[in-house]
Design a protein around this nucleic acid. Structure first.
Length: 556
RNA sequence: UGGGGCAUGGUGCAAUGGCAGCACACCAGCCUUUGGAGCUGUGGAUCUUGGUUCGAAUCCAGGUGCCCCAGCCA
């Protein structure tokens, strides 16, 4: 296998290679630019991996730079969480910086622009600024303050900085062209007045730089060669390039790609916040959320997430990836790694009539058929068992070959059993299944070559341990939760969380929080921090493919 | 009646003028002590019209559709 062949390529990697070849840059340096105003979600992972891998593949550097230019929205808590999540993904960066590290230098650069006559203080109200910006199809109007002289501008800017003026009373604007067809070039704001403490600079500043003024200049100051961002910044590129051009400083290259969208998933921080605030979910780390904290809690591995991101690829097409692909990646990874265990989620009592009262046998069970080195374990077998309610039907539908009266199935790693009769309650519901076992099939193999069509899982009732099982499904019922007029809150899946009490084999009495198992024939489960002594809580990470569900649906 | 961008199976991504391919999903079969996993196979796509060319998904022209932009958010 050669690295040359397996190395992914896309239009960004090609552009970077071209820049190196042409000599536009002789090194590669990228940056991760999160705003510390919320938790990372899977959409960020795509952007992060592009930055990280492109730096890595080119023996370049990666800087983690927090874009903290708006004190009203940002908090240290998020800085820590973002670093933690990024590290969990395995991303490595050279150093951590903050936009706020550069506030002084940025201010000097702004003064320089004012001195050059390329920026001015505007006294218009926000409403006037907006009204005079024009529309998409009509030109804007120059501010009456646009031709203020340099001295006055310098003085006013300094006084803005000193906190002499109230919020919203003035802004510093770049002097470009109010008639520009690209609205971002119609004298964009560089500084606004905000009398609020900043999570890092405290109350030193009363003015804060805007994204457009900050980001590109930070890139330049840090010697970033490639500033990779999502498509919505395409319209900002002319401005991104205008500033360093005027200042005569290092000019990084901005390249845009399509952000990640996922079916049945919301990616906007604002809307995710509503889910938390309106208690649709229990918090940012609720396993149904697309945040990394939630996915970690749910049991997704970093490897699976990274594999997914890699398979999705990089392009400029607006696209919505299928959440089924993510789930497939999670299954593939977990299938190789997870220890198998037996757990009954919705118990139905089975009594083996011909099994000696009080007898207990230890059955050998394989820990992971995909990994022989995982070894085997012992599971106790006795006269009274629990099986899954779904694994018994009094009247079997077509193609059903699990347990039903008269049918024989295999209890995994134990015996063949045959259903003889059932016991019902006053409502006519089956409460107990009676069966006989064939002692010659111990371990699950018949001596006479007799075949059964089904193998079902079980636990010994006396030895089983109670556990809380949290079964998760998609949060939304629509592929695009935002489709239609009713909004995403109108298509919440009422069954996105179903909690049951299940029974596990005794080896799972107190599993380590965060450990992952495959419950045979059901899915992958991860031990939740809510677990208490002898009463673990298991989160469904992802279910196993359910062939019977498909058949049943088709037969109907 | 502006500017910027994008159109390839159901979904996502390749093919860089030379046999339209990969993954997921789907369907059929094989195998199976998980109706799991695995294996094999089938079907299905170049937005449209015209042009250049021996040859076009790719180049050119027109059309159509979708996305982004009028924060003192990022």
């Amino acid at each position: 296998m050669s690295d040359e062949e397996t190395k992914p390529s896309d239009f960004i990697r090609e552009a970077v290679a071209e820049d190196l070849k042409s000599g536009r840059f002789n090194y590669v340096r990228t940056r991760l630019p999160p705003e510390p105003n919320g938790y990372l979600h899977i959409g960020h992972v795509k952007a992060f991996m592009i930055d990280y891998l492109i730096a890595k593949e080119n023996n370049g550097e990666l800087i983690l730079r927090f874009d903290d230019t708006n004190p009203a929205k940002e908090e240290t808590e998020f800085v820590d969480a973002i670093e933690d999540d990024a590290r969990w993904l395995g991303i490595q960066w050279g150093k951590v910086t903050y936009a706020s590290d550069y506030f002084d230098e940025l201010y000097e650069w702004a003064r320089k622009l004012v001195l050059m006559g390329k920026a001015y203080v505007d006294d218009q109200t926000p409403e006037e600024v907006s009204a005079n910006r024009g529309t998409l199809t009509t030109s804007g109007k120059n501010s009456p303050y646009r031709d203020r002289d340099v001295k006055e501008n310098i003085d006013l800017l300094e006084r803005m900085k000193q906190g002499e003026f109230p919020d919203g009373s003035r802004i510093l604007r770049a002097k470009i062209d109010m008639g520009h067809p690209n609205i971002n070039m119609r004298d964009p704001a560089m500084y606004r007045i905000i009398h609020q403490p900043h999570h890092r600079t405290g109350d030193k500043w009363k003015i804060y730089p805007m994204y457009d003024w900050t980001h590109g200049q930070n890139d330049s100051m840090e010697g970033i060669t490639h500033s990779l961002c999502s498509l919505e910044y395409e319209n900002h590129r002319p401005l991104y390039e205008w500033f360093p051009e005027q200042l005569g400083v290092f000019k990084p290259r901005q390249i845009e790609f399509a952000r990640l969208n996922l079916s049945y998933t919301l990616m906007s921080k604002r809307k995710l916040r509503r889910l938390v605030e309106e208690k649709v979910v229990k918090g940012w780390d609720d396993p149904r959320m697309p945040t990394l904290r939630a996915m970690r809690r749910r049991g997704y591995t970093a490897e699976a997430i990274l594999d997914f991101i890699n398979r999705v690829g990089v392009a400029k097409n607006y696209s919505v990836s299928d959440v089924a692909l993510l789930e497939s990646c999670v299954r593939e990874d977990l299938n190789k790694k997870s220890l198998r265990r037996m757990a009954v989620l919705n118990p139905l009592k089975v009594v083996i009539d011909n099994y000696p009262e009080g007898q207990i046998e230890e059955m050998d069970a394989v820990n992971n058929p995909e990994d022989p080195t995982a070894g085997i374990r012992k599971i106790p077998f006795s006269k009274v068992l629990y099986i899954e309610q779904e694994d018994f039907r009094e009247i079997p539908p077509p193609k059903y070959y699990r347990l039903f009266p008269g049918n024989e199935v295999r209890l995994r790693y134990a015996y063949f059993i045959k259903c003889m009769h059932v016991v019902k309650n006053e409502n006519g519901e089956v409460t107990e299944v009676h069966a006989t076992y064939d002692p010659s099939t111990r371990g699950g193999d018949s001596l006479d070559g007799r075949k059964v069509k089904s193998t079902i899982h079980w636990v010994s009732a006396d030895h089983a341990n109670e556990a809380e099982i949290r079964m998760y499904d998609r949060l939304f019922t629509k592929e695009d939760p935002e489709e239609g007029d009713e909004g995403f809150l109108s298509c919440i899946n009422p069954n996105s969380l179903v909690v049951t009490t299940g029974y596990t084999e005794p080896s799972l009495v107190s599993p380590e929080v965060g450990s992952r198992y495959q419950f045979e024939r059901q899915g992958y489960f991860c031990v939740d921090p809510d677990s208490s002594l002898n009463r673990p809580v298991f989160n469904l990470t992802v279910n196993l493919k359910d062939a019977w569900a498909k058949i049943e649906k088709k037969v109907k």
